[in-house]
């Protein structure tokens, strides 16, 4: 199978990390920036690193960006450059364009220009941080669609010691447990006590919920809200 090709435009902290992490996963990565120092630095980690002015349509075309399966535009500092780059790359016919935005306006403009995905890491991280502080029993929350979420929640006291089939989690809260995470103590190779995570995917109805279990549940947002309050 042909390796997927990615282009990362803008090699600030975010773009640099995306490019090097993609390369670590064995992907073909074209890394682009207008700063020669950073391009030199990343050149040994990625497939190709180029100094390109991304507001120059001809230069972007010559760099081979149009051949990539996905392009990540990670120009955070200069919104104007990011917008121009988005427009140029869209016109080149790239199938998947992801734009890292630095404000809500930037998000809206990038989406209107045809970006396939717009991300706002600072806002998303802030929201996650607030959620983790306000509801510490919620360890992770992923929006699956407008109404459905996947949530990792600490097993509520009320459910501990009950088998899933008797817990009433589906009847009372309208959510389904799709996995259970648990930390298991063991002795490592160096003879020290340690813990490792054990994941029980699709636990059986007889599975007994234990103290400290992390339940991975899926359901409608309003149902999950009800469960969070237990």
């Amino acid at each position: 199978m042909k390796k997927k090709q990615f282009a990362v435009i803008g090699l600030g902290t975010f773009g640099y990390s995306v490019a090097t992490e993609l390369a670590k996963k064995g992907m073909q990565v074209l890394a682009i920036d207008n700063d020669s120092e950073i391009v030199n630095e990343i050149s040994s980690y990625v497939t190709q690193a180029l100094i390109v002015d991304v507001t120059d349509e001809k230069a972007v075309k010559e760099a081979g960006v149009a051949d990539c399966d996905s392009v990540i535009i990670a120009i955070g500092g200069n919104i104007e450059t990011s917008i121009l780059a988005t427009l140029i790359i869209k016109e080149l016919g790239v199938k998947n364009i992801i734009v890292k935005c630095s404000s809500r306006w930037h998000l809206r403009v990038a989406a209107k220009l045809g970006a396939d995905t717009v991300i706002y890491p600072e806002f998303e991280m802030a929201k996650k941080l607030v959620d983790s502080m306000v509801t510490p029993n919620i360890l992770e929350q992923i929006a699956l669609s407008k109404d459905y979420n996947l949530v990792e929640i600490l097993a509520p006291q009320k459910l501990i010691g009950k088998a899933i089939k008797d817990s009433g989690i589906r009847r009372d809260y309208g959510v389904n447990i799709i996995a259970v995470r648990r930390q298991i103590p063991f002795i490592n190779d160096e003879g020290q006590t340690d813990i490792k995570e054990e994941i029980n995917m699709v636990p059986s109805p007889d599975y007994e919920i234990m103290k400290n279990d992390v339940l991975v549940v899926i359901g409608q947002e309003k149902s999950l809200e009800k469960l969070k309050k237990v």
């Binding site: 930390q183 103590p185 813990i195 103290k211 400290n212």
Partner: peptide, 12 residues
């Protein structure tokens, strides 16, 4: 202390 840390971590 390390072992108590492990216990706390496994209890989230």
């Amino acid at each position: 202390y390390y072992n108590l840390g492990l216990i706390s971590e496994s209890g989230n």
